[in-house]
Amino acid sequence: MKPLVRNAVLSNYLELSRSLGIDPQVLMKQVGLDAVGLSVPDRWISGAAVTQLLERSAAAAQRADFGLLLAERRRFSTLGPISLVLREEPDARSALELLLRHEHTYNEMLRSRLSEVGGVATLKVGLEPVEGGDARQAVELAVGAFHRFLRGFLGSRWQPLSVCFTHAAPDDPGTHRRLFGPVVEFDREFNGIVLYADDLDTPNALSDPMLRTYAQQYFASIAVTRETTELDRVRELIEVLLPTGRCSIDQVAGSLGVDRRTVHRHLAASGETFSSLVNATRGRLAAQLVASPRRSLTEISGLLGFSAPSAFSRWFRDNFGESPRQWRAAQAGKR
């Protein structure tokens, strides 16, 4: 399947869009994404859709610096579980190498590499190509995020030798100059950051050797591997889409950047169908939601993607052997 990215790549996207006077929900809908899903940062969505969203947002806001403004709002925690390990690395070099080695745990579109020659280190930031579209904003978001990451280790006064972009300069490069200083360059042969190699040897004053061991063990136990199955991805998307009322195989396929036949093929290889996954996900969520008296059954019906409470009641009886109200009463009696 086509590369995915964590929802967290759009961290603060809604807030930035509103501050610039554009409607993020309309733009997200145009590319097959859902604003509701952004509340779960570890969910995976189509990288191509995110790239298109950033371009459309920049155009709608008439801000060629949209990607950089989003990068500026990045936090260390945006990287997900790996951020716990990075904080404990002994120096900037070790942290950066770890980040590059595990790119697939937070962004499958990234293809970055670090090289050193003659005392100069070059971080080249690459992205998987997107069919029929520009990726300027996604590139600037990625480079801006790496720049912000390095400053987190090297200090706010740190200055690279150059910050490079292959695309032409915007009409107003003010934001680029503000974030990167006078060293930003356009129309270069690569996207990335050039710095003195010994900058990377800067010790991490916050590193705790004992905590580093624990952090590494924790990350090793939960890290997403490259073999994460399509079944897992489809299951996660179903859970996100159910409350929207638009949980269909077409919607899931669009979020994954493939067609519905591809989704069917991958599910069949695992002995599943889309309907079986939807039903299993509903069953798991229903057991949690109905057991709690804090939500009405009508509200739960909507959260599980049913068009009417009566349809939810029929489904629940078929799967649990009794009505939601009876099942809730029985669970309350067990407490």
Rank of each mutant, 00 (worst) to 15 (best):
V184Q: 01
L98W: 06
W158Y: 08
G119Q: 10
R157C: 06
A135I: 04
G132H: 08
L150M: 07
V184T: 05
L179N: 04
Q159Y: 06
L100K: 05
G174Q: 14
Y106I: 05
L110G: 00
V184I: 15
L98T: 12
L114Q: 08
H176F: 15
F153A: 08
G174V: 11
G126N: 13
S162V: 08
G181K: 11
T175C: 08
P173E: 12
R148F: 02
E131F: 03
V117R: 15
A145C: 06
A138Q: 08
G118N: 11
F180S: 03
T122E: 13
R148Q: 10
E185H: 01
G174C: 08
G144R: 02
R157K: 05
E131H: 05
T175H: 10
L123S: 01
S156N: 01
Q137R: 03
E108V: 07
S115Y: 02
P129S: 12
R177N: 13
A145S: 15
L99G: 03
V120L: 05
L100V: 08
P173Y: 10
L179Y: 02
V130Q: 07
L110F: 12
S115V: 11
F180G: 03
T122S: 12
T166E: 15
S162L: 11
Q159E: 14
R136G: 01
L114C: 05
V163C: 06
H102N: 13
L150H: 09
V130R: 00
T166V: 15
C164K: 12
E103F: 07
V139A: 02
V120W: 03
V130I: 14
R113K: 11
D134R: 09
P182S: 15
D171K: 14
P182Q: 15
P173H: 03
D134I: 00
G118T: 09
T122H: 06
H104L: 14
R113W: 13
A142C: 12
G181E: 08
E128R: 10
V143T: 04
R151W: 11
R177V: 14
A145Y: 04
V120H: 06
A135F: 01
H167K: 13
E131L: 09
V163H: 02
S115L: 01
D171V: 14
E103M: 13
A145H: 04
G118R: 06
G119A: 04
E128C: 10
L150E: 04
L123R: 06
L161K: 10
R148A: 05
L154P: 04
G181H: 12
G126A: 09
A121S: 14
W158S: 04
R113L: 10
T166A: 07
E131N: 02
V117L: 01
R113E: 14
E108P: 11
V163A: 05
F180E: 05
A145T: 09
L99E: 03
R178C: 11
G181T: 06
Q137D: 05
R157I: 04
S115H: 07
A135Y: 01
R136K: 11
P170K: 04
V130S: 07
T166L: 09
G118Y: 09
E185A: 14
C164T: 10
Y106P: 07
S112P: 03
G126C: 10
H102A: 09
V163N: 02
H102F: 15
L154N: 08
L114P: 03
L123F: 07
H147Y: 15
G144D: 04
L179S: 07
G174T: 15
G118Q: 11
L123T: 03
F180P: 03
L127Y: 01
D134L: 03
E116A: 10
N107M: 10
